[in-house]
Amino acid sequence: MSDCMSKLVRTTADVMFLFITVFGFYIVLHGHLTPGGGFQGGAIVAGGFILLIVANRLEDFLKWFQKRSFQSCEVSGLVLFIGTALAAIPLGYIFFKNFLNGAGGLFGQAVPFGINSGILNTAGTIPIMNIAVGIEVLGGLSIIVLYMTSGIRSHEEGE
């Protein structure tokens, strides 16, 4: 674990990380139009971070991204998700009411019923919840692998 992989692997991982991240956020943002959604896209972005963890040294990775940033990613995703669900109550609706759908504002365009070609600005609160869950899964899965890797390291060094 103390050694990193060869320069070829590291460079490929660095280049592929950008494409994996962009693809993951595409899946998250188009969750209400195409197959996919928050969980799947978040897992893809977390896969990019895990690729960086296994290809590089752990100290180098912790120099680029801190553990605290993943933790705040996860917590802010959960808070945004529950906050979006709770925001319907002060507006006079019930919990989990899709109050943005059809309102004309953000994500509020009226959807043409039946088979259509897909408009990104529809579906009300569903894209917001997709983004929230995507951020949460990103932070959660990344920090699980980060904790397990540092657990192996402290085991090898400590005893």
């Binding site: 969750g31 209400h32 139009l33 959604g37 759908n101 959807v111 529809t122 579906a123 997709n130």
Partner: peptide, 16 residues
């Protein structure tokens, strides 16, 4: 589709 506005029915079930 008319109640949630999402084309993906699975997503509208999961989140709505």
């Amino acid at each position: 589709q008319e109640q949630t506005g999402a084309n993906n029915i699975v997503t509208s079930i999961v989140f709505d």
